[in-house]
Amino acid sequence: MSEMTHEEMVARARHIGEQADLEIAEAELKGGFSLKLREVVHTAQIHKLLRPKRYGGFGMGARTFSEVVRVVAQRNASAAWLVYFTALHEQWVAYLDPKGRQEIYDSDGFTADIFFPIGKVDYVEGGVKLSGQWNWGSGVKWDDWIGLGAFVEVPGMAGGPQPCLVTANTREIEIVGEWNPFGLRGTGSHTVRADQVFVPWHRVLPLAHIKATGRPIGGDWDDTTPIYRIPFMPMFCVGFGALAVGVTQRVVAEVKQRVRDRQRVLYGVKEWESPIAQRNVAEMLVKADTIEALQERYVQQLEAWDAANTPVVSEAERNRPNAWRSLMCKEASALAFRGIEMLGGAATTRGDVLEIAARDLLMLSIHVGQLYDDNMLAYGRAEYGLGGHPLL
């Protein structure tokens, strides 16, 4: 495979955003973007962004990954969420047993996951049989594979059962088409069910082991690949902040323009001429700058770990990016609703860019990985030598 440049990958992301823009109304109504857009994403080979080169991927790093998500998010958060997850979920595939990596990468399909370890397994010859029901399977109708969370006692690993991703083919599970949320409607994050689905050991990923060691199962890996050189979860979650940045940039641009265009009939002035409006716009711009700067700091930290080949860090170091990310998402959500407040009822029409952005950013801020109180608590605990976030 030829080398992929940062500029070319970002250009492909921009094209995906433009195509997604044509489907936003339909995606909001139907609860998911079309298979047509899925093919646009697949043709752009976004899913190969993080994949190691030895498996036909581009082996790119955090900056390109973050920028791809941000560019699509300027068009729509749900589309960016899907693009993010399409590339992201190939990260953990790279930590599977070599046979599992080869099987999934050779299929060239997309991969989903639901981390919550709520599934049940029965141990059988060669693997496990998986059963259960999981919510929030983002983009699952686009995917060929899905890693589903369950506690599993993995052969050869001490310590008893641990949280694992048990990876099934989506043909073997049931997708429950009930996705009808407040925001992020276009992600198609449906509930899924499994009933005694056989999964061989080479498709079972022991997450606690990966978190502790930073090394893939079974060895046989290239340590020049960025995803192997950076702590697993901080890299896994970098796109959430990028998504917050992209949507925030769109929100601020929209609000600034609408303030300029708005006529305040009762006061006989243009809105932008009001000192109050001028002050409010300035505050929004500065808050957007703050969110951007914190995401840049996040990416710089990942790049520093990559340069130093540091896949395992202290609890405090690992939890600090979680706190940054939760603050970004919380502030982005508040900023979007502040924009609507400034513009009044005209910005609340169903399907308006600002109305969609506000709902989407609220959903982003309350995602389990971004919960502000949880992440601040975990970071504070870690600063005093206690355990941090149990999952992240």
Rank of each mutant, 00 (worst) to 15 (best):
E28T: 04
C237G: 08
P216R: 00
Q162Y: 08
R318V: 08
L49K: 04
G56N: 06
R320K: 12
L371A: 05
S2G: 09
P161V: 02
A73C: 03
E18N: 08
E271Q: 13
V353C: 11
A212C: 11
I16F: 01
D108R: 11
R264T: 11
I175Y: 07
N375I: 08
P321A: 06
R381L: 12
I210F: 02
W134I: 13
A358W: 05
Q102P: 07
R260D: 11
W221V: 10
K270M: 11
V69M: 01
E271A: 14
L165I: 09
S189W: 07
G388Y: 06
N319K: 04
G339C: 10
H6G: 02
M342F: 07
D374T: 12
D223L: 07
D195N: 14
K141G: 07
T111P: 08
E273P: 06
Q257V: 10
I46V: 14
E39Y: 10
P311N: 09
K99F: 07
M9G: 04
I175R: 00
V312Y: 01
I356C: 02
A112R: 03
N309P: 05
V312C: 06
A347P: 08
V166S: 01
G218E: 03
E178N: 15
W81L: 14
R171E: 12
R350E: 12
G339F: 10
V152R: 00
A13K: 01
M363C: 14
N322G: 11
G344E: 15
E23C: 01
A282H: 10
I210K: 02
E317I: 08
T224H: 10
E67A: 06
V121F: 02
A336N: 07
V281R: 04
Q278N: 07
V68H: 04
T167N: 07
D144H: 13
Q249I: 08
R215E: 14
D143C: 15
F85S: 13
R63W: 05
A347N: 02
L22K: 15
G385A: 08
R75H: 13
V353N: 10
W324L: 06
A277P: 05
L207F: 08
I291R: 00
G214Q: 03
T213V: 03
F198G: 01
H15N: 07
M235N: 09
I114V: 15
V312N: 02
I24Y: 02
D261K: 15
E39D: 15
E317P: 05
E341S: 13
L294M: 15
F232I: 06
S66A: 11
E383R: 13
R250H: 00
R338I: 09
L364D: 06
G61K: 01
V176K: 00
Q19V: 12
K330F: 11
A77I: 05
E26R: 14
E331P: 03
V152Y: 00
E292H: 12
G214H: 00
F115E: 14
L266V: 13
Y384Q: 13
V247Q: 01
R262Q: 14
A282V: 09
Y298H: 10
A347E: 12
G385I: 06
V251N: 01
V238N: 03
I146N: 02
Q257S: 14
R262Y: 11
G137E: 02
T170F: 02
